[in-house]
Amino acid sequence: MRALYGVPLGIAAAGAAAITYAAGYEARAFRLRRIEVPVLPSGTRPLRILQVSDIHFVSGQRKKQRWLHTLAGLRPDFVVNTGDNLSDPSAVPEVLDALGPLMQFPGAYVFGSNDYYGPQLRNPARYITARISGKHGTNGNKPITGALHNPWTDLRDGFDTAGWANLTNTRGRLKLDDLEVELTGLDDPHIKRDRYEEVAGGPDASADLSLAVVHAPYLRVLDAFTADRYPLILAGHTHGGQLRVPFHGALVTNCDIDPDRARGLSTHEAEGHRSYLHVSAGCGTNRYTPVRFACYPEATLLTLTPRRSPR
């Protein structure tokens, strides 16, 4: 037999092998990305931020749970969680257990759409067609039609009890030794819950460092943060493209940011100002598309260093 339903057997076998690799190995081959970002005032000691994002926890994911436990061994100065912790409404206790060792450290968080609503089974091809059409699945402030509501308040209460700052359309502060770190956050732009007017005005001059935090890196949000002169913006949501083409990169981002900035450190410019932008590829997937290819699941340790002096 040379073909299976019109598809040459060699191509079918290669496709099956790719899916097996993407689902059976790479989606569970967790990695730590390390980067440096020069945003601190001169003479300031380096700060180490651990960013976790897009965990998309499904009950029973023991390997992911154990890996998240190990991240506490990095002993970061503080932790930033950029949302989409859930992909299963019953998984809140396991998420809180997985992040429990990290909640011993100062931290802050924003939520993503999957913290509020359960995942829906959809055709993965819609992400590509959405990219072509310019429509990225935003739904205003109305509940997503047919979506299950997640127990996000239980997740919020767990984070708040641990002392993590809730950055939902508000500002928070962390005191780290003699440093005052201000964090300004937004609710998820992907479902239009962001309210920038509630946090507008730029960094507080009394803070030693001000950072911006959001789940989905939509351009309207990046423009606003950059125009207000935040030196660094932290985001997630994109899964790094999730399925990347070797030597090409991401095909889609599930928002309006360009694929070249779907993961890692880049810059953003608006109104004559420039900010660093870090987009985490996250460490999970939607439960209905549990595959990754050329895009390992990750957390990121960002070491903030003093700004480089101009020559």
Rank of each mutant, 00 (worst) to 15 (best):
Y288I: 00
G60R: 04
A200I: 08
T303D: 10
V58S: 09
S113C: 03
P106R: 11
V39W: 06
G185L: 06
R156W: 00
T238L: 12
P8R: 09
V199H: 13
G107N: 12
G249T: 01
V213I: 07
Y288N: 12
R292P: 06
V214F: 09
D187R: 01
N141P: 10
Y276W: 15
G6V: 05
R220C: 04
A294T: 07
R307C: 10
D157A: 14
L40E: 08
N139C: 14
N254P: 03
T129P: 04
E180C: 10
A22K: 01
Y296N: 15
L9P: 07
L96V: 02
Y218Q: 13
R287K: 11
F105A: 15
R126D: 13
P259F: 08
L302K: 04
P93V: 00
A299K: 01
C283Q: 05
V52A: 07
F57N: 01
D260K: 12
K142Y: 08
H136F: 15
Y296Q: 15
R126H: 13
D54S: 07
Q65I: 02
T267H: 12
L68F: 00
L32T: 12
D223A: 08
G15D: 05
D187N: 03
Q61H: 04
A147C: 03
A23M: 12
N81G: 12
K63M: 01
V245Q: 05
E198H: 06
A165M: 14
Y196E: 09
T285K: 03
G146T: 07
G272R: 08
V39G: 08
V110E: 07
S280A: 11
F78V: 10
S87Q: 04
R156M: 09
T153I: 14
V214Y: 08
K175N: 13
Y196W: 12
I257S: 11
F105H: 15
S53Q: 05
Y218G: 05
A125R: 13
D97A: 12
D154K: 09
L96S: 03
Y230H: 02
T303S: 13
G137E: 02
P231Y: 13
L183G: 04
L302M: 09
V52I: 13
H237G: 05
A130N: 15
G264C: 03
K63G: 00
I49P: 07
A235Y: 00
P106S: 13
F78H: 11
P203L: 04
P203I: 00
H268K: 04
G24A: 05
K63R: 10
S280K: 02
A17C: 07
L86H: 01
N169Y: 05
Q120V: 08
C295H: 05
R261S: 13
R2S: 15
A29F: 00
L219D: 14
V213T: 01
I55N: 03
G172P: 10
R292G: 01
I233A: 12
R274H: 10
A3Q: 15
S275M: 04
E36G: 10
D256W: 01
T170L: 07
I132P: 06
Q104T: 10
V245G: 09
N85F: 11
R292L: 02
L179V: 09
R131W: 12
G202Q: 03
R195E: 13
R33G: 00
R274E: 15
T70N: 04
V199D: 14
R48D: 11
A216D: 05
G282M: 14
R307V: 10
G264S: 03
L174V: 06
D157S: 09
N141R: 15
K175S: 15
I257W: 08
Y296C: 14
T82N: 10
L301H: 07
G6H: 06
E197G: 08
